[in-house]
């Protein structure tokens, strides 16, 4: 579904991701893990079309991506952001936020679709006309997930979707993401620094360090602590050590 070949991404001329290649199959959940500065979010931004200075090839569903993302792309790939406090427009109600993608793409039947999506992400319908500041962090993240799903994409890019949430709320959101993937056959590309989340939500993972891919492994190998790169094992040890 996603094919990354020799991707190099720069910020103001300084490369921060160096020649990264990996493939994500249809319906698969793939994680990019690493510390801050490893370039994991940058790769996501390049795929999403938010970072423009890149070379190499990015393919989505077999189509090579250029610098600009067209309407067909955004209906296929959507993103959930890290910070549920910053990813919702502070002056727009849940209804506005969820209707916007439908309005942009001139899709009819807004009321029904918004209500159905609220049900799908487990948000009570009475929240429909609330503003973000009237919602908790977990509820906001549900809205953000709902917004990403409004255009019924096949791929979700997840940028640390639970790192700003409390642990008990994190569990709810992780369950929701797992359920949605099972129901809709979604492909996930998850970026995180938290290895246990990868264990729960993903099939394979790529370990990034200073913009280079150190290894790609099955999650089973992560669970048994058998990552083969030295850096991968170091991350596992640190994660286990708290």
């Amino acid at each position: 579904m996603i094919g990354i070949e020799d991707l190099t991404v720069s910020f103001n001329g300084t490369p921060v991701v160096h020649g990264v290649s990996f493939q994500v199959g249809r319906g698969e959940s793939f994680a990019l893990v690493g510390e801050s500065g490893s370039g994991k979010s940058t790769i996501l931004k390049a795929i999403a079309g938010q970072a423009h200075e890149w070379t190499g090839s990015i393919r989505v569903g077999g189509d090579a991506m250029g610098r600009r993302r067209d309407a067909a792309f955004v209906r296929r790939v959507q993103m959930v952001f890290q910070d549920p406090y910053g990813s919702l427009h502070p002056r727009r109600t849940v209804d506005d936020t969820l209707s916007e993608p439908l309005a942009v793409h001139r899709i009819a039947g807004r009321d029904g679709k918004v209500l159905a999506m609220l049900d799908a992400v487990g948000l009570s319908r009475r929240f429909r006309f609330r503003l973000p500041h009237q919602l908790s962090g977990g509820q906001r993240q549900r809205v953000a997930i709902a917004r990403a799903l409004m255009l019924e994409p096949g791929v979700l890019l997840l940028d640390e979707p639970t790192s700003a949430l409390d642990v008990s709320v994190q569990a709810e959101i992780l369950n929701l993401l797992a359920d949605l993937r099972a129901e809709r056959g979604l492909t996930y590309l998850l970026v995180t620094h938290d290895l246990p989340i990868v264990s729960f939500l993903c099939d394979r993972l790529g370990v990034l360090r200073l913009g280079r891919l150190e290894e790609i492994s099955e999650v089973a190998e992560l669970r048994t602590g058998q990552l083969y790169s030295a850096y991968g094992r170091e991350l596992v040890a640190r994660s286990a050590g708290g």
Binding site: A48, Q50, R69, M79, S87, V104, H105
Partner: peptide, 16 residues
């Protein structure tokens, strides 16, 4: 901010 990135990602034009 991410909410601006989010609408851009939904294909909204600059004017919008």
């Amino acid at each position: 901010a991410e909410f601006i990135a989010a609408v851009q990602m939904q294909g909204a034009s600059h004017a919008r």
